[in-house]
């Protein structure tokens, strides 16, 4: 399980953020002692840091600079100051992403997910993913079954499938899927999403996996691994 360190002095936000991350399959740690923030972050051995710019004792940007001399852990800067200058400064100090408050929680999760995906794809694999007895080529939009049979997915179907896959065995809400699609500049409406999911099901049904995407009424969809 990926561990995420939250550096945020507003107790209400850090508490809610912890709940959000914990519910989304991460382990969240909240930094308590800002007097020695850099040591604290390193001691948490986190896989990712959510760093607020306005924190006690020290400016978040300076903390990031300090942290970068000792660690390459991915950092997402979170701030209520939104100007191009602040963003440029943060990125130049080595932030991996920059999110402004108030953020859409689903978007924040997507950004976190994107950073982890980027890191994982760096380790060897040529982009193919194996799931059950099929090989998935996300770039080409192709799924190949062990029988050698291939099916071709549209970009939207692939985006939906990949999102379900990376959240396998967890209920994914329609809102999450929609946010993921819109985030990929595919501006679907509600009907189009339903159509895409039924087409996806039809593809798998043809290949003999009828049960692969289940609907949880009022909650969303779940991919059974």
């Amino acid at each position: 399980m990926k561990r995420i360190c939250i550096v945020e002095d507003d107790k209400s936000i850090s508490g809610e953020l912890k709940e959000l991350l914990d519910n989304s399959g991460y382990e969240a740690v909240v930094l308590e002692d800002f007097g020695n923030a850099c040591e604290g972050i390193l001691a948490a051995e986190a896989d990712l840091v959510l760093l607020d710019i306005n924190i006690p004792h020290m400016n978040g940007e300076l903390l990031l600079k300090q942290l970068r001399t000792r660690s390459e852990v991915p950092v997402i800067m979170v701030t209520s100051r939104d100007s191009e200058a602040d963003e440029v400064l943060s990125m130049s100090y080595g932030a991996d992403d920059y999110v402004t408050k108030p953020y859409n929680p689903t978007i924040l999760l997507l950004r976190i997910n994107a950073i982890f995906k980027r890191l994982d794809s760096g380790h060897g694999s040529n982009g193919t993913i194996v799931f059950r007895n099929m090989q998935i080529f996300p770039q080409k939009g192709v799924i190949r079954y062990s029988s050698g049979r291939e099916i071709l997915l549209t970009k939207n179907e692939m985006t939906i499938f990949m999102y379900l896959l990376s959240n396998k065995d967890r209920i994914v809400s329609r809102d999450e899927l929609m946010t993921e699609l819109w985030n990929n500049q595919e501006y679907l409406n509600d009907n189009a999403l339903t159509v895409n999911i039924s087409r996806l099901r039809a593809h798998f049904k043809e290949a003999g996996f009828e049960d692969i995407i289940e609907t949880r009424k009022g909650q969303g969809y779940i991919l059974i691994g």
Binding site: D10, S12, I13, E16, L17, E19, L20, N23, N54, S80, R81, K101, P102, Y103, N104, P105, T106
Partner: peptide, 18 residues
Amino acid sequence: WIHEIKLPISSMTLILHN
């Protein structure tokens, strides 16, 4: 003030979402 008020708004968004 705007940066300050964004804190309760963020908080509220997260609470509603959670």
